[in-house]
Design a protein around this nucleic acid. Sequence first.
DNA 1: GAACCAACGTTGGTCAGTCCAACATTAGAG
DNA 2: CTCTAATGTTGGACTGACCAACGTTGGTTC
Lengths: 135, 135
Amino acid sequence: MLPSRLTNHAAMTANRIVDRALAQAGVRRYHYALLAALEEYGPASQAALGRRTGIDRSDMVATVNDLAERHLLERAPDPEDRRRNVVTITAEGRTFLGDLDRLIAAAQEEFLAPLPAADRRHLIDLLTRLVEHRD
Amino acid sequence: MLPSRLTNHAAMTANRIVDRALAQAGVRRYHYALLAALEEYGPASQAALGRRTGIDRSDMVATVNDLAERHLLERAPDPEDRRRNVVTITAEGRTFLGDLDRLIAAAQEEFLAPLPAADRRHLIDLLTRLVEHRD
DNA sequence: GAACCAACGTTGGTCAGTCCAACATTAGAG
DNA sequence: CTCTAATGTTGGACTGACCAACGTTGGTTC
């Protein structure tokens, strides 16, 4: 099997596991990525969040909308730059993210189950090298 | 970075490279997969091709249509089972596949460029183990 | 032979991720 | 003031992946 296809197949497997885990909490990968970025980096503009998560601007709008509706984050105009909003995770969002983190950790474990610890580290190293070569 | 996300990112990289290569010949990954399966396994029903390539039945119809239009394959009713079609690669399709194979080989090389041969083999082994564990 | 079940191909559709275009507003540089 | 870039929003397209419904065909069981 072609390396590209194999990688794709592995990614599909990973996505399936992660998607199923997140679906238990009624969210998708984009939602998780956004909440995780807010928690890690603090309040930020949508554009900055897009740069950090890889989510496109228009999809960032939709994702922020989804999560704002559930009071997991808040959006407010940025007083320092009127082009921007500032997006902030709520306390409820933080709690929810804790739940998601547990689901995600279990999904990683499931995805990597066939590999012992040393192989896992090696896989991560190899993939990282593939990916960073591009960025 | 989460292993699932890293894998996904690597797959996106691979897909981008492969998609760009295939776009030079005006086809997509599904098209290539179908032609390659026909070449490897010979004439087959759409359902069998779907099982080999992972392409869903309705997408198989569309993909076969695309390639039949370009005379890269032919579809005919199967005289042995009237529920089925038999799909056959044409001589033109075979030549075209040769071109695609060269594009794909170059894309694999590009994708794996950051890794020396031993690491490539190891990556393939690790990914294969992840993927086959599921099937 | 009839009833039932499964397989097949086709049509039609949805979804998630990915990405782009166009627009109006705002900020900064010259 | 002009020009350029950044921002957020709306709207859209594309690909891959997947599902439902349908009519036809083939095989099994009674």
